[in-house]
Amino acid sequence: MAYSTKVIDHYENPRNVGTLDAKDTAVGTGLVGAPACGDVMKLQIKVNDNGVIEDAKFKTFGCGSAIASSSLVTEWIKGKTLEEAGAIKNTVIAQHLSLPPVKLHCSMLAEDAIKAAINDYQLKKSA
């Protein structure tokens, strides 16, 4: 299967690989996917007092498209408000990376990961 140059770029030079302190109340962690399905994404966001994502990190187990999708969204959500980040649609991710139909689930997983991280952050805030 031929990958798009953008997928290859993110796969070879992934942005924002790493871990934030999950115990920090300013940090939200999303863990989506399943090992049995061949992809697991962990996405973490650090949110400042104005509700803006000031840092994002990811770790992904999966194919090149899954790694690229998660790397891309960490770039996109930095500097965005939670509302803006939560509105990112998988179709836009898929389009940007030129994912073939068989890889669309990678972009859906990336969208889910953002939502899960935001959820986790808000849950911690309200607790």
Binding site: L31, G33, A34, P35, C37, V40, T60, H105, M108
Partner: peptide
């Protein structure tokens, strides 16, 4: 592996099978 969340869990002694994964 440095990029894999599962590798982190393994190193932290988390049993990956003990997690309730959402199958899609």
């Amino acid at each position: 592996r440095e990029m894999s969340p599962l590798w982190d869990m393994h190193r932290d002694g988390v049993d990956i099978k003990s997690i309730q994964w959402a199958h899609h």
